[in-house]
Amino acid sequence: MFNLVLKDLLVLKKNFLFGIVYILIMIVAFQQIGGSMLAASIVVFSYMMVQLACAYDEKNKADILLNSLPLNRSTIVIARYISTFIFTAISIVYYLLLSGLIKVLHLPLKVYPVSLEGILGALFALILVCGIYLPIFFKMGYIKSKLLNFVLFFGVFFGGAILLQELITNKDQSTLQRVVQFLNEQSTMQVAVEISAVMILLLFISFMFSLRNYKKREF
């Protein structure tokens, strides 16, 4: 399974080199969104890498190769989910490096520190986007799932990431009063645990759909 993750990293290695530039562009572009900058950068970068990994698979007709090797289809599906989280980890490292550099060099750019809330918000949005996208990708492949990708990227990303960040950090200003009230009554830790539980559930449901779809695929 880790060979497949390694394969994603090797195939995308050029993109990772440019990745640090992507994150810098995002920091510049997201100057106005405040504390959501971290979440937005992580989600955009990770989702872009997932998209690229899927696109390279399609371009190389990788399903034929992978399914001719001694691999279970479940391994192929799990590997793509693990790759997604590796991309997230890389984006956090890039963000840390850049935000440190911006501070040290006193560049005229606002950067916000890496926080647990920010990472959780990013993970939630990413799991939501990838959780919807990957089952469709495993059913139809990259080209046919492109339209959905477009809708998800602009819809859920802009809506989801910001909304969740707001929900966690600025509880009073949120419009989702009932949810906020519920969250307000609990400690940050409790909220984090609850959100993590929802994320794991979403991830599990998404994985089961991906697996079901991929097992039925013909190449």
């Binding site: 060979n3 390694l6 394969k7 090797l10 195939v11 090797l69 001694p70």
Partner: peptide, 20 residues
């Protein structure tokens, strides 16, 4: 059907451990 972006050795590195 191999990944065109990888080198011969990189592709081998991915495939080899899959075989007993």
């Amino acid at each position: 059907y191999f990944y065109e972006e990888l080198t011969v050795m990189e592709m081998k590195r991915v495939i080899a451990p899959l075989y007993k």
